[in-house]
Amino acid sequence: MSKRSNWSIPYVIFLVLFVVLPLVLVLVYAFQDNQGRFTFGNIAKFFSDRDALSTFAVSLEVALENTVLCILIGYPAAWILSNRKLNRSAVTIVLFILPMWINALMRTLATAQLFTMLGVTLGKGTLLFGMVYDYLPFMIYPIYNVLAKMDKSYAEAAVDLGATPWTAFWKVTVPLSMPGVASGILMVFMPTVSTFAISEFLTNNKIKLFGTIIQENINSSMWNYGAALAFIMLVIIGITSLFNKDKEAEGSLL
């Protein structure tokens, strides 16, 4: 082993302790009963647990709606930010990214207070509002990145070949910015499935999400079932990120 490769040792230790080991533990707990014996029971329990299944369905639905809303709002925002004619200063970009610097829990609590103050009934609407508010920067940033780096001559070439600016946008700019949209989806959809704080605060626990159930199980010491649920979620996240595999490189925040 050469000397330089020794430098990676602290990182390897970190990865093992805080990434690999917890994942292994999740896996081990998920396939154990409370006596520590190997079982598929926890997984089976989920598929027969109507509450858990419906919460899972609701989570996916909310995540999907949140993602769609983030694309609908985030894409135009990213486009405007990347367009030098419309946005001449870097300050606006920072303003959009700024919320990312503040703890999401704090922002969510503040939003909940605001809704209570205004007398808005907490429910699906406030939940989606909070989700979009929290995750929008994660959609804007990768799309903005791709659009800002995109060679302007693509759109110019389309216009030169007879496309109206609108057609050029749909036929060239949008398809070429798909990698950014894909990583935006990855960064918004996944965390939304497992989120629990937002639903707790912004719906007063009226709407439970998958993350909430995991948290409840762990809190009430049902480690094995909680771990199984977390494992199922990881599998789903894993499957979704496979779709994203080849497009990740360009637009990703990671």
Partner: peptide, 20 residues
Amino acid sequence: IPPHERPLNTVFQRYALFPH
């Protein structure tokens, strides 16, 4: 007159072929 209505075409410096 906007560029898409002009009866001329351009060959761009870095070609600008649509990669998709």
